[in-house]
Design a binder for these strands. Structure first.
Lengths: 233, 233
DNA sequence: ATTGGAACAATGGTCAGACCAATTAGATCG
DNA sequence: CGATCTAATTGGTCTGACCATTGTTCCAAT
């Protein structure tokens, strides 16, 4: 077994022994290197692997933070998709998102307890407040709302997959295709999704989520048509 | 942009410029560090990322070899989930599959042309024939049918994501949880999905796909209850 | 007492150079 | 010609230093 694989195994044991949870900060690289009897270089190589797998986040000047639960038997699925930044690829990712968003909303309606509902409602109201104040969608508050849904779905895979796709969307989400009022049409569906979730109406929540993505899709198509974007079919 | 992100970008350009194909050997770390004007440490950190993503393979004493095609716009989906051995993880993957399966079926109904429909029908009949001959689901023909659906969805991401997940819990799909007639209940829905797709009824196809996954989920729960599997809630 | 900013310490990021371990290619010898 | 030893190559690890960013502390001005 190579050295830094051993380090990763030791790190798993360490996290288990100290019962570290997502969000916790792990020891500094220097301390780890001393405690595991390897050089800091090797520790860094191992942490780089974990960072690539999304298990850990490093912040210069601050520390290294656990992003997800780790256990000894984990399966890593590095999925890399060749996907351009043209309109067609963007639409493909949106279709994936539609499938996941609908399912996440349905599961959320089934499983969300009072505390999860309160959290979602909080994010919803923050988004609505921001919308009325600035007369437009805030991509950040919008993202927070959806993340709350994914979290309450009880299935961590949703958040993981969508987070990875969101990164791709990110550059477009800021000023997508130059359309200023992008996402305007999707606004009301956030509340309807919440209402269906709060009523524990799984199929209703699924339907509202589908409507929301449909408005985004329409906006995207409109923007692409205006700009003659490459890949437009 | 952090330094080794820049290195990764430069590496992509280098691979493109030299038109390197999978299997080819990249320059040594020392040469790369010199050519990219960064330290070998930084080059190694970048290559470690690529290795984690399965894009590259390093062999000590030999060199670093390209394992997959790389392009500037790639979407990396680092999925890590607890070993598929427990019931909860298996259910999580099934929930993801439900979202994707439903969406793929709907898109397929919208877009499948005559040739795609004929291909799906071929797979369906092969599956049905195998079912009646051996009086049981054949995981291979079943998989072929679903893959045909994903292909006809017109979105390559579906096939890629699901294929990766399928590989992950392949062993369970063969004789999941020891249930012998696993998947028996899902059999009739393959034909109903096909019928809805052939009728270009997107929402109907989505509904049938949801029903199919529901039967699989029920089978899974039944098997787990019988075996007192860990992770059963 | 509060606030603002300046100095400082801690932490991840990068660097240079050396040596180790595995592999490969070439030279050598039977 | 073939097997074997040797040396060069290459990725893996180590050390120690310095840089860039962040968080904290503490003091001065208000």
């Amino acid at each position: 077994m190579s050295r830094d694989d051993a380090v990763l195994k030791a790190l798993v044991d360490f996290v288990a022994h100290e019962s570290l949870a997502p969000g916790d900060r792990l020891p500094t690289e220097r301390i780890l290197s001393e405690r595991l009897k390897v050089s800091r270089t090797t520790v860094r190589e191992a942490l780089t692997r974990w960072e690539g797998l999304g298990l850990v986040e490093r912040r210069q000047g601050s520390g290294t933070y656990l992003k997800a639960a780790v256990s000894r038997d984990m399966l890593h699925l590095p999925l890399t998709l060749a996907s351009g930044n043209d309109f067609r690829s963007l639409m493909h990712t949106l279709e994936i998102r539609r499938g996941l968003e609908a399912e996440a909303a349905a599961l959320c309606a089934k499983r969300a307890g009072p505390s999860e509902l309160a959290f979602i409602r909080e994010k919803l109201e923050a988004m609505e407040e921001s919308f009325h104040r600035r007369d437009g969608m805030s991509s950040e508050e919008d993202w927070d709302f959806h993340q709350a849904i994914y979290q309450a779905s009880g299935n961590p895979l949703f958040a993981q997959i969508i987070a990875a796709m969101h990164e791709m969307f990110h550059r477009f989400w800021e000023h997508p295709l130059g359309v200023h009022d992008f996402g305007h049409a999707s606004f009301p569906y956030h509340r309807t999704i919440y209402e269906r979730v709060a009523a524990h109406d799984a199929e209703g929540a699924r339907a509202e989520a589908l409507k929301l993505i449909a408005t985004v899709e329409a906006d995207l198509k409109r923007g692409a048509a205006n700009l003659n974007l490459p890949g437009l079919t």
